[in-house]
Structure formats: structure tokens, C-alpha cells
Amino acid sequence: MLYAILCYNNEDVVCAWSKEQDDEVMARLQVVTGKLRDQGRLGPVARLMPTTAATTLRKTNDEPLVIDGPFAETKEQFLGFYVVDCASLDDAVDVARELADANPGGGSYELRPIGAFFPGKEAA
């Protein structure tokens, strides 16, 4: 089954990383994703810009509202996701655990089985 592994962390902390620290984390995460890719299990991966760059469109009874900012103000923000083919939930938890180990500090990973998947055309 395909799982979306959604990454949440405090973006204040992530934004405070020095370039060296950021590069270090990315290199460690790429070890994890590289393994998954070699096994043919890795789907799209995205790292999102800070929530200050986000815009939310909220449906109303009338015209939808376009609001600056993320969908919700939370202590940890949605910062990125991985799509991974996992044999079981245990397997997905293991992948998330590896990602968590590669990543310093706090944060959370939400494991969401994917209901329908449309990979689309990969953007440049």
C-alpha cells in the first residue's frame, strides 16, 4: 500500500538551521530516501516553503475566501511529505522512524494510507 508520510515540525527551528546544518540533514535524509528509491518504493517527495508563503482558499456559501497563511495555526507546521510503498503499517512506521532518526530535534510524522494516487506528470 502507498503511504503518505507527512512531516510536521516547528518551522522556527527549521528556519534557524544554518546552511551547513540544513545540508547535513538533507544528506542524511537522502541516505534514507536513496535506499527506498533503490528498492523502487519511493514516490514523489516534496519540501514545502515556510507557511508564510502559503495561501488558503476557504469555501463559503458565497464566493470562496482567499486567505494569506496556512490552513491552520499550529505549533508544528506541515513542512513536507514522502510517498512510499509500504508492505504494512509496521513497515511504514519503520520508514518514518528512519526519517525521524535522520532529522534532529522535535517534530512528528503522520502516516496516511493513500486512497487514490495520480502521479501526474513530473514537474520540471
Binding site: N10, D12, V13, C15, A16, W17, S18, Q21, P104, G105
Partner: peptide, 18 residues
């Protein structure tokens, strides 16, 4: 992550709010 460099980053990112 318990490395001093990471702890310092965590401290400085929490600073304004704290």
C-alpha cells in the same frame, strides 16, 4: 539531537518567543 550545535540552534530559534 543532543549535539551542542543543534541545541544552540534550538535555543536561538526559541529566543524571541521566550
Amino acid at each position: 539531537m543532543t549535539d551542542p550545535a543543534w541545541i544552540n540552534t534550538a535555543l536561538s530559534s526559541a529566543r524571541p518567543q521566550a
